[in-house]
C-alpha cells in the first residue's frame, strides 16, 4: 500500500453506529389526506374553484336575507324592474326581488344536488361493496341487475317518476337517486375487486389479519378517493338534471325558487328582460364549472397515477 494512503487513513475515525438515530423520523409523516391536500393546493384552477364554491355557498345561505326583499313577496307596482339600488338584480313578472330569488334558488339547487349525490353515495357504495366483498353467486346476481339498469336511459325514467310524484325537493332527489347510484356501485365494486387481489391485501391475510380489519384498514381507505371524485362529478350533473326538469315544467314550481325555475321564468321573458335569464344562467354555469374543475383537481390530487 502506498505511503500517502496510510497517512490519509489516519485522518478518519470510524463512526459508531447509532441505531436509534438511524431509525429516527425527523418529521411527522403525512396522512393520505394531508398528502392529497398538498397536491391539491398546487393546482391553482382547483383552488380558485374551491374559493368560488365557498363564496357561492355562503351567498346562497345569507344572500336571501341581506337584500331589501324576500324571495316570495310579490309587488305588482314594481314588475320587470331593471337592476337598481333597491332591487340589486331587478324584479320578475310578479315584482319579486330577483337577488333574493337567485340566492334562494342557488341554495335549493345546491341542496338537491348535494343530497342526491349523498344518497347515490350511500346506496352505491353499499351495493358495490357488498357485491365485491361477498363475490360468487350474490355478486353474479347483483351484477346482472346492474347490467339491466345501465341499459335504461335514466333521464327518461326520472321524467316518468317526476310525472307521478308531487313536485318537490324530496321528489326530485329521490327520482334522481333511483337511477343515479348505479354508476357509483360499478366503480366501487371494480375498485374493491382490484384491491382484493393486490399484494398488500395478500400480505395482510398472510399475517393473519381478520376480514373486518382488512376491510376497515385497507379496502375502505383505498376506495375513498374514487368515491369522493365520483361524488364531485355527481353534484354538477344533479344540478343540471334539476334545472332540466324545471325547464321542461316537471321540477319545482313558482313561487319556489331553484336555478331551473329561474331559468325557465327567464326564458319566458327573454325577449324583453334578458337579465332575468342571464343572471341565473351565469350562476349555474359558475357552479358547474367550479364543481367540474374541482373534481378534476381532486382526481389528480387523490390519485396521482391517473394524472394526465
Amino acid at each position: 500500500m502506498p505511503k500517502e494512503t496510510q497517512n490519509l487513513d489516519a485522518l478518519f475515525k470510524p463512526a459508531a453506529a447509532r441505531p436509534d438515530d438511524k431509525e429516527k423520523i425527523t418529521r411527522e409523516s403525512l396522512t393520505a389526506f394531508q398528502d392529497s391536500w398538498r397536491r391539491l393546493r398546487k393546482n391553482k384552477a382547483a383552488i380558485i374553484s374551491l374559493v368560488i364554491l365557498v363564496i357561492m355557498v355562503v351567498l346562497a345561505i345569507i344572500g336571501p336575507w341581506i337584500g331589501h326583499h324576500n324571495y316570495y313577496d310579490t309587488d305588482y307596482s314594481a314588475v320587470y324592474q331593471k337592476p337598481s339600488a333597491d332591487h340589486w338584480f331587478g324584479t320578475d313578472k310578479f315584482g319579486r326581488d330577483q337577488w333574493a330569488r337567485i340566492w334562494q334558488g342557488t341554495s335549493v339547487s345546491l341542496m338537491i344536488a348535494v343530497l342526491a349525490a349523498a344518497l347515490d353515495l350511500v346506496v352505491g357504495v353499499i351495493y358495490g361493496a357488498v357485491s365485491a366483498l361477498l363475490g360468487g353467486r350474490v355478486d353474479n346476481v347483483m351484477q346482472r341487475i346492474i347490467e339491466i339498469l345501465t341499459g335504461i336511459p335514466s333521464l327518461i325514467i326520472i321524467i316518468l317518476l317526476m310525472m307521478i310524484m308531487k313536485p318537490g325537493i324530496i321528489t326530485i332527489m329521490v327520482a334522481m337517486s333511483i337511477t343515479g347510484w348505479v354508476n357509483m356501485a360499478r366503480l366501487v365494486r371494480a375498485h374493491i375487486m382490484k384491491l382484493k387481489s393486490q399484494e398488500f391485501v395478500l400480505a395482510a391475510r398472510t399475517l393473519g389479519t381478520s376480514n373486518g380489519r382488512i376491510i376497515w384498514k385497507h379496502l375502505i381507505p383505498n376506495t375513498i378517493g374514487i368515491i369522493v371524485i365520483n361524488t364531485m362529478f355527481t353534484i354538477p350533473s344533479a344540478i343540471f338534471t334539476e334545472a332540466f326538469l324545471s325547464f321542461i315544467g316537471l321540477g319545482l314550481q313558482s313561487p319556489m325558487a331553484s336555478l331551473g325555475v329561474l331559468i325557465n321564468d327567464g326564458f319566458a321573458s327573454l325577449n324583453s328582460q334578458a337579465y332575468l335569464l342571464l343572471y341565473p344562467s351565469i350562476i349555474i354555469v359558475l357552479l358547474m364549472v367550479a364543481f367540474n374543475i374541482l373534481g378534476d383537481g381532486l382526481r389528480d390530487a387523490l390519485d396521482p397515477r391517473m394524472r394526465k
Partner: peptide, 18 residues
Amino acid sequence: AVLGVSVPNFVLAALMQY
C-alpha cells in the same frame, strides 16, 4: 371542454336563439 359539459345545453340554446 369544461365549459362544454358545464353550460347546460338549454341555457346555451336560449342564449343563441336570443
